[in-house]
Design a protein around this nucleic acid. Structure first.
Lengths: 115, 115
DNA sequence: GTATTATATGAACAGTTATTCATATATTGA
DNA sequence: TCAATATATGAATAACTGTTCATATAATAC
């Protein structure tokens, strides 16, 4: 394979090559977006936008089995999108920082999603 | 399963339940983010940030087989993140609109990714 | 201590997805 | 028309991921 339009887009191609982030960084960014790319997890994040909630209420809001929600919460926590704290028998989850909120806002703004 | 802290977080739980977007909308948003959640596709989008490029140069920038890149380009096009136009023997790809750019900007801003 | 409740976890299964290989289509130049 | 080049595509495989089921942990009430 070879390129026939030698000069026209060389600039873009060269800059793309020079500025490609290292594999590790690409993987990290991809992993972050992966968290919001599954409906079940996205619903959890949508729910938590309204404040700190225990697992019971999260299950109530997003549907599905408690076990499934718990597994997803673990993933979300592992990639830093939510955090948790214990309160008696309950464990309360919340969005971990403003970055997460920003991503959700973006989803709504740019995808015409009424929230 | 039942909730023991009846009153404390009822507000958040109720709002979460009332404001959960319909399944269809959640799925649409999730699908959009799925496009950027795989390293191979994310690298393609990163590359295209620098301008319109033919498949040959995209392959050069992101690595991997031509066939694999072509399959990914098809997915990205199907979900509206890139568009293409023919120029002689080449097909030139570019980011389709400002939403895509916004998402990539966000990734860089909030995830401390130097681009 | 035991019982009960809230949440987490491991293993297994099912569905999805990315890649590879081989081949097809479309454009250009002779 | 034919050969060469750029890109796309279908099928098959391999890797990954979400869910379920059963069970474990941790806290509270008795």
């Amino acid at each position: 394979m070879e390129c026939t339009h030698k000069t026209e887009h060389e600039g873009a191609a060269r800059r793309a090559l020079e500025n490609m982030p290292p594999e590790e960084e690409v993987a990290r960014v991809a992993a972050t977006f992966k968290a919001i790319s599954e409906p079940s997890r996205l619903k959890i994040l949508f729910a938590l936008r309204h404040g700190e909630m225990c697992v019971y209420h999260i299950v109530e809001a997003v549907g599905g089995a408690q076990s499934a929600v718990s597994h997803q919460l673990r993933l979300l926590k592992a990639c830093g999108m939510v955090r948790s704290r214990r309160d008696g028998q309950n464990i309360l989850y919340s969005l971990s920082d403003e970055h997460v909120v920003a991503v959700l806002e973006l989803a709504c703004t740019h995808l015409h999603c009424k929230l």
